[in-house]
């Protein structure tokens, strides 16, 4: 049975409305961008076959002027955009009220107590990682990884036009990270209910439901329970994971001839930095999520100072 009332309540919560908008906007713009990428990829093939052909990614005719005046051709668009955004915002603000709950009360815990939607993904990761990793180390790694992105992409191709063919690896890496981020937000917002328990869409949020799950550490699975042995086994598991995932990522980024050319142009420093971020964020986070959800594994590495 689908509990429509519950479903409607979650979707129409004022602070969740932006997420619905975000999903629609991302779907539209990804389609919009990829459509142009496909068109440009066709153009690239045509130019490869006929080098004399014009290379404009936009409609083009001989004799058109190369530049236009900012006033009015750009300013009128900016003005129009400002007008439309203002209207949208006005209608949104007239139709939906900003939420206001009861006065803050430290004695009464909100259940579920959720972070603002753009941070709910990190909160969801708290299920799989300790707070020092999900809340501090991972966000810092994500920001550093994003900042370094241009410096790790060694390909000079695909600058200033949409293309898929020439930039499979760069787009794939970013796309995977973006998908994890958005996916975690969706799970945290629409799936997690009271007590941060998993409720499928349409399931009634039952405040008394509790999940009694015995979690274990990865070394426990192979019968290691002694502290030092566990720590060593966890360390070995992580080293093996980095080696294996690194191998897999290497295979993924050197599949086509284009990708191999880019790989050859990449310096060792660029490549290993890329591998570190790719393994840690793009492979490690989903792997740990899978371990937790499928095998009830809480930690891989257990030490007296920190656990992963």
């Amino acid at each position: 049975m689908i509990d429509w009332r519950q479903l409607r309540e979650i979707i129409t919560t004022p602070d969740n409305v932006p997420i619905i908008g975000l999903i629609l906007a991302i779907a539209f713009y990804v389609w919009y961008g990829l459509r142009q990428a496909r068109a440009n990829d066709r153009l690239i093939r045509e130019v490869e076959a006929d080098p004399g052909r014009h290379r404009k990614t936009q409609p083009y005719e001989e004799g058109w002027e190369r530049e236009v005046q900012v006033w009015p051709y750009l300013l009128r668009i900016e003005f129009l955009a400002a007008l439309i955004v203002t209207l949208l915002l006005l209608v949104w603000s007239l139709c939906i009220n900003a939420p206001l709950e009861d006065p803050a009360n430290p004695g009464q815990t909100m259940n579920p107590a959720k972070a603002p939607w753009y941070f709910v993904g990190l909160q969801e990761l708290l299920v799989y990682f300790d707070p020092w990793f999900a809340g501090v180390a991972l966000p810092v790694l994500i920001l550093i990884g994003l900042m370094l992105f241009p410096y790790l992409d060694a390909s000079p191709l695909g600058s200033g036009y949409y293309t898929l063919r020439q930039r499979r690896v760069a787009l794939g890496a970013f796309g995977a990270g973006f998908a994890i981020w958005i996916g975690a937000i969706l799970v945290g917002t629409f799936i997690r209910g009271p007590g941060w328990v998993w409720f499928w869409p349409g399931q009634t949020w039952d405040h008394t439901r509790a999940v009694y799950e015995t979690t274990r550490d990865l070394p426990d699975l192979i019968g290691l329970h002694n502290g030092v042995a566990k720590a060593l086994a966890g360390f070995v598991a992580i080293v093996l994971f980095y080696a294996g995932a690194g191998r897999l990522i290497h295979w993924l980024v050197t599949r086509s001839e284009t990708d191999r050319r880019i790989y050859r142009a990449t310096s060792a420093l660029q490549y290993y930095t890329f591998q570190f971020f790719a393994i840690t964020i793009l492979a490690g986070v989903p792997a740990k999520i899978a371990l937790r959800l499928l095998l009830r594994v809480k930690y891989v590495l257990v030490t007296p100072w920190f656990n992963i």
Binding site: I44, V47, K56, T57, L157, G158, S159, T258
Partner: peptide
Amino acid sequence: SGPAPVKLEREV
């Protein structure tokens, strides 16, 4: 940055 004319692989 653009829209810039496309570049070919063999040109880099």
